[in-house]
Design a protein around this nucleic acid. Structure first.
Length: 106
DNA sequence: CGGTTGACCAAGT
DNA sequence: GACTTGGCCAACC
C-alpha cells in the first residue's frame, strides 16, 4: 500500500460536520509530509467516498479543492460547517481527532 | 539521479 | 497584516 492510499484511509474517518488539516493527517501517518498529503488529495480518485473537502489549512483557512474552492465551501455549508471570510467558524471546535493509520487498520 | 512542483507550515521581516 | 524564507516530502520528469 502506497503513500496515497494511506492518506485516503486516514481521511475517510472524518465524520460529517467535522474537519481536519493537512498537517494533522501527516501526523497521523507519523511523518511531516504535509505537502505530499495535499498532492494525494488533489489526485484522489475516490472523490465522494474520501471526504477531501473536510481537510483544510492549519490556520483555519480553506486550503484548496480539485473542483474549486467555491464548491468546497458549498459542500461544507451543506454539512453544517459555517464559513466566514474564507475561514472556518469555530475552527478549533470542528477539528476531528484523527486516529493513527495503524489504529484504523486495527 | 538531480530538479521542479504542489490543495503546506512556521518563523521572520 | 502583508510579504519572504527555509524547511518539508512524495511524485513526476
Amino acid at each position: 500500500m502506497g503513500f496515497n492510499e494511506r492518506v485516503w484511509e486516514v481521511t475517510k474517518q472524518i465524520p460529517k460536520g467535522k474537519v481536519s488539516t493537512y498537517k494533522e493527517i501527516a501526523k497521523a501517518l507519523n511523518c511531516r509530509a504535509y505537502r505530499a498529503v495535499g498532492n494525494a488529495l488533489n489526485k484522489n480518485p475516490f472523490a465522494p467516498i474520501v471526504p477531501c473537502h473536510r481537510v483544510v489549512s492549519s490556520n483555519g483557512g480553506l486550503g484548496g479543492f480539485a473542483y474549486g474552492v467555491k464548491a468546497k465551501i458549498k459542500i461544507l455549508k451543506t454539512e453544517g460547517i459555517e464559513i466566514k471570510e474564507d475561514k472556518i467558524v469555530e475552527f478549533e471546535k470542528r477539528l476531528f481527532k484523527l486516529k493513527t493509520f495503524q489504529e484504523i487498520k486495527r
